[in-house]
């Protein structure tokens, strides 16, 4: 595995590993780790670092909705044009073009259902190319970014074994 691929794998596992600990886990030196990260960032492979939050464990109310969007294209407007316009809104957490019954899969976050609903009706639905929106509010989250929510699994192994 190239050092870039190795570092990418480690950061995907835990973006808070120190460069020192990444060096210890690989055959790389600390400065090689730093270089690999700088390159990955400069080349746009790594676009950012973020925490995986289980909002159910906080006091904060957080409302999320998955929105299916159908659009019509014309000679002057491409998927990318519509996407660029939607992605600018800070409420939009993720936006993907998908295959199947609808075109865009959009994730929206807000502080209340009212806020999210208003955002979709006032900002998204009126976009001329958008012909239909279907909004699914998230009721419960079980796994995000590869991390399972819930109490986890206790280590029930014998403390010392052959």
């Amino acid at each position: 595995m190239s050092s870039r691929a190795e570092i990418l794998e480690l950061l995907r596992e835990n973006a808070r590993y120190t460069t020192e600990d990444m060096a210890r886990q690989t055959d790389l030196t600390e400065s090689e780790v730093e270089t690999a990260i700088e390159e990955l960032e400069a080349d746009g492979v790594i676009r950012g670092y973020t925490a995986v939050v289980d909002w159910g464990e906080t006091d904060k109310e957080r409302v999320r909705a998955l929105v299916e969007l159908n659009v019509t294209l014309d000679r002057e407007t491409s998927y990318a044009d519509i996407a660029a316009r939607l992605a600018k809104f800070p409420e939009v957490e993720s936006l993907r073009l998908v295959s199947g019954d609808y075109d865009f899969d959009m994730e929206v976050e807000g502080d209340s259902m009212r806020e999210v609903s208003r955002f979709i009706s006032d900002k998204v639905a009126p976009v001329p190319e958008i012909t239909q929106t279907v909004t699914h509010y998230v009721m419960e989250s079980y796994k995000e970014s590869g991390i399972e929510f819930g109490d986890g699994h206790d280590d029930d192994r014998l403390s010392v074994s052959p």
């Binding site: 280590d155 192994r157 014998l158 403390s159 010392v160 074994s161 052959p162």
Partner: peptide
């Protein structure tokens, strides 16, 4: 509260 590095099976 011990940390066991004495275990002979996968975690």
């Amino acid at each position: 509260d011990i940390i066991s590095l004495g275990v002979g099976e996968p975690d």
